[in-house]
Design a protein around this nucleic acid. Structure first.
Lengths: 341, 341
DNA sequence: ATTAGCACTCTATAGGTCAGAGTGCTAAGA
DNA sequence: TCTTAGCACTCTGACCTATAGAGTGCTAAT
């Protein structure tokens, strides 16, 4: 742990830089934060902090700017002072969200808009991982002659549809039989379980001599993933307008990275397991092209089970207090929506 | 109509500027396009073209650049030389698309990616207007106690789900009855018809003394829009990387405009009725913030009925030949997918 | 250990010069 | 009358220089 005085000054520099994107000079620190120290002393301390890797000097005669390590210190300290973080968000923020509780995807989509509008960063959300969801009802309809629409509904209010082409025609009777059978075996298990265990069991179950059902199971096995999670991203233009990105090359790099849904999925997936809000700062971020961005995410839950992720992407010079706050509140709001309805 | 020689030179300037974003000088025109004229003559002609509003001079000693009117001339001329446009796209472009014919929204989403990847502009698509679609099957399930999931399937392979909260509990029996009734009355009409005519008729139909069905109709009336069309947008980063946008202010303006889904919907909606490919150039575009962009769109059809729109957004200095070509081919491809399946 | 003082370094801005590109105009030629 | 060669003119962009301002690091004094 570093000396309390270093601590205070580092905090001051980070906080000040976050509120105003100019490198912070020693004089400024002594003026703004009356520590009872002279600029010269602060200079020495700042030089030490630079040696330790918390601060960086863009050039000899500039003030200091936090490094990723500096932000990390700040964020870690923030989490210790919990009381500052738990201020919550005014309810008006969620007014529009409350009306859409119907469909979780719409809800998430709107949530990313809310996040980005209020934070001025990019709002992101990942819909519940399909393989973790638990179907409560599976229905089949025939569509044209040789297609079947499978509709799968889960407790979280997710509905997924998939059109499957079949080799043979099915009568309405057949469909009904298959559907009943699937419901009896699948409902209440996660898709993961269904895939890995049940389907295999069923195929070997000698009791099923019905080749229609065998066929249906074969198709399910192939198709049951129902695609991967959906990602919602909004507010790219918000971050492009920040003074942090006034460099063409960087703007292009960033817009590429943020537009890349696969990248975002991978990223969010990797952070999905942590409890509560977690923060990834700049170079801590494994993803290519995101080394100049920070990410604040949290998980929303169905009951006690975390099922998806939402968060914010912004510059490393992010207002972490506000960001953590809004992400936390929004995740909790969504969790509440899911359990209330 | 303007003189044939002016014509040729204007064409040359536009074409040359499109392939290379430097203002075009008189000398360059005489060299590249051997018209048998001296630079001085070409200069005179170009001065005339400027007076007529087809060309613009960024500053005294620069070459000429096409105005929106200049591009308009070029595009109109292009449409007359149809043979140049109808070269089609290599089949490989659509390889990935062919595999997704299942769900029209997935298809459109992937189509916008294809469009942007091959054109390096922004790909956009509008899903079929809900009010123009024709349901072929409506199904209801109960979801938790007081919700009903309405699933509406149309011939185009659109599936829409909506969760509706009810004031009262319905038994499975009730649901079945309502569902049968709705199917018998709704299937085969456009949602527009259903809304405007049938629902009203039905409410006044004295034969319906069943208040359950009356209630269902009331709910349908409110909810039948099933939200507006979905928009798919991809490839913003592609255009931000173009040399045309190397100005921070412009980049921000453009990224805001393109991210604005309502704007895009309005825009595409306005262009939905034209037959074949249509082009909107720069200031012809009514939308705020898009005066520096051009839009090339076409409609895809179900049979003979245009049901949705896809296209490209790029700089006014766009490769119109390529853009028109790829938009046209893609629209036709989607149309084929919809009719084949 | 702290601080005042000072020389030093670096940036950002403004002004000035210069080559290059392309024009418009004029006068001569077809 | 239309075309063209020649030339003066204009504007940009690159490059250089000077200067003010900000902030540092170091040294010596407290």
């Amino acid at each position: 742990m570093i000396d309390a005085r270093l601590n205070k000054i580092l905090w001051a520099v980070v906080e000040s830089y976050i509120s105003n994107p100019d490198p912070v000079g020693s004089r400024f620190v002594t003026k703004k934060y009356a520590f009872g120290l002279s600029p010269a002393t602060v200079r020495n301390i700042m030089a030490d902090l630079e040696d330790m890797g918390f601060l960086h000097q863009p050039h000899t005669s500039a003030g200091r700017v936090p490094t990723d390590k500096g932000y990390r210190f700040y964020v870690d300290a923030l989490f210790k002072r919990e009381e500052e973080l738990c201020t919550g968000c005014p309810d008006e923020v969620y007014e529009r969200l409350g009306d859409i509780r119907d469909d979780i995807n719409m809800l998430l989509n709107e949530a990313t808009r809310t996040l980005s509008a209020h934070s001025h960063y990019v709002g992101i959300a990942l819909s519940p991982k399909p393989e973790k969801t638990i179907p409560i009802k599976i229905s089949l309809f025939r569509h044209r002659d040789d297609h079947v629409v499978v509709t799968l509904m889960t407790d979280e209010g997710i509905i997924r549809n998939k059109i499957i082409r079949l080799d043979r025609k099915l009568s309405l009777r057949d469909l009904e039989r298959v559907s009943e059978y699937l419901n009896s075996r699948f409902v209440g298990r996660t898709l993961d379980e269904i895939r890995s265990v049940i389907l295999r069991e069923m195929l070997h179950d000698k009791a099923i001599c019905d080749d229609l059902i065998a066929e249906a199971i074969r198709v399910c096995q192939e198709e049951l993933y129902f695609g991967s999670s959906e990602v919602f991203i909004s507010g790219l233009s918000e971050v492009l307008c920040l003074p942090d990105f006034s460099d063409l090359v960087r703007i292009r790099e960033i817009s590429k990275a943020i537009e890349d849904k696969h990248l975002i999925i991978k990223l969010l997936d990797g952070m999905a397991d942590t409890e509560g809000v977690s923060v990834l700062i700049g170079s801590e971020n494994p993803a290519e092209g995101m080394q100049k961005l920070s990410i604040v995410v949290s998980t929303y839950k169905e009951g006690e089970r975390p099922i998806g992720t939402i968060g914010i992407i912004g510059p490393t010079r992010m207002d972490y207090v506000k960001a953590i706050n809004i992400v936390d509140t929004t995740a909790k709001f969504i969790t509440r929506m899911l359990s209330e309805k």
